[in-house]
């Protein structure tokens, strides 16, 4: 087990002194949460943990995909469709696994045997190709039923596909990106903050990749609309109320957006959003999810790591130490890889 070390502790952007750093248990819940007022954490150690947890689902995620180039569904990552044939249409969100694979392929870190592997590149590329094949004629995508035209699936899967293409330097499926962006420009779902943030990020990502101005302007508009909707308490609406899990996701998405389009308004909104999380997240990394509007238990980290919100990260870290924080591998096939990708991004953030 790790030896106690001495490190610098940081709150927000302030370093407040040298403190002892506790053990690094690997999140298996065998050590109790340290119940002292002295916060102990080093970000690189936490990031190493995030990477291990993100990587832990790699084999499972690869197994979800059709990896046979001769198959008509090559690149489909909805196993319930292509393998079990239990569904009559593929869930577009499963194609977000391409983003997960792209992050693994492009980053060499301890334990990652997939970095630089040509087959990973091929499968990620196939994921994007299959994504473009299952697009509805109007540019939208389906998640729960055929012909659904899901705003959620179109937003998140478009962003993931663009990121996959960007990270791997693939030839973009121009028509699919254009049609998805056009559909996102025309449609919105203001009742659900995380989806609005994802749509803005997708539009901005398409604009940056294809060098188009219109989607970037629409993305700006959408972000402004989302910021206008922010409650004085700091939360973004999730069907009328605040939800810690989705708030952490929205913070991650907006923090990613901010790297592409910095601005004081978004920075200020993020500060308020973090204050909401600050009030809800307990010292042991838990939160009363049953009191939240959507009752989600997950907690996205990449935004907080980008913003160096060490106070919140430390509390989540306490949850990891105690084995109470929900990890990517705890989630089902439908949702594990989104959180897994976020953990990888959080672990790789400089």
């Amino acid at each position: 087990m790790g030896v106690f070390q001495v490190g610098v502790f940081q709150v927000g952007s302030f370093q407040v002194g040298r403190v002892q750093v506790g053990r690094f248990p690997g999140g298996n819940g065998i050590l109790p949460v340290k119940k002292t007022k002295v916060f102990c954490m080093l970000l690189p150690e936490a990031q190493s943990f995030y990477l291990r947890q993100g990587l832990a689902i790699a084999e499972r995620v690869l197994g979800l995909g059709d990896r046979d180039p001769a198959s008509p569904t090559f690149g489909c990552f909805d196993r319930y469709y292509w393998h079990y044939k239990a569904l009559d249409f593929p869930n577009a969100r499963a194609q977000e696994i391409g983003h997960y694979l792209a992050v693994l392929y492009a980053n060499c870190f301890e334990g990652n045997r997939y970095a630089g592997e040509p087959m990973i590149l091929k499968w990620a590329e196939a994921a994007v190709r299959f994504w473009s094949q299952i697009q509805n004629r109007d540019g939208s995508f389906n998640e729960w039923w055929p012909g659904e035209r899901s705003f959620c699936a179109t937003s998140f899967s478009t962003y993931a596909a663009v990121e996959t293409v960007r990270i791997l330097g693939l030839t973009p499926p121009m028509q699919a990106f254009d049609r998805a962006a056009e559909w996102l420009c025309k449609n919105n779902n203001p009742a659900v903050g995380n989806q609005v943030a994802a749509s803005a990020l997708a539009l901005r990502a398409v604009a940056d990749l294809l060098g188009e101005e219109f989607p970037a302007r629409k993305a700006e508009e959408r972000v402004r609309g989302l910021l206008d909707q922010q409650d004085p308490a700091g939360f973004f609406p999730e069907y009328g109320g605040g939800d810690v899990g989705y708030q952490s996701l929205t913070v991650s998405l907006l923090a990613a957006y901010r790297t592409k389009a910095p601005g004081e308004a978004i920075a200020s909104a993020l500060r308020k959003a973090v204050e909401f999380l600050d009030r809800r997240l307990c010292e042991d990394g838990t939160f009363d999810y049953k009191a939240c509007s959507r009752q989600t238990q997950f907690f996205y980290l990449s935004g907080l790591v980008r913003m160096r919100e060490m106070n919140l990260l430390l509390r989540h870290w306490n949850g990891c130490r105690a084995g109470t924080a929900l990890l990517p591998s705890w989630m089902d096939d439908r949702y594990c890889f989104q959180l897994g990708t976020d953990y990888l991004i959080a672990g790789l953030e400089d």
């Binding site: 509007s293 109470t324 949702y335």
Partner: peptide, 16 residues
């Protein structure tokens, strides 16, 4: 909106 316990797909995972 009208459900006594709102359905959320990405919820109800096991926690200790």
């Amino acid at each position: 909106r009208k459900a006594s316990e709102p359905h959320v797909p990405s919820a109800r995972f096991f926690t200790p």
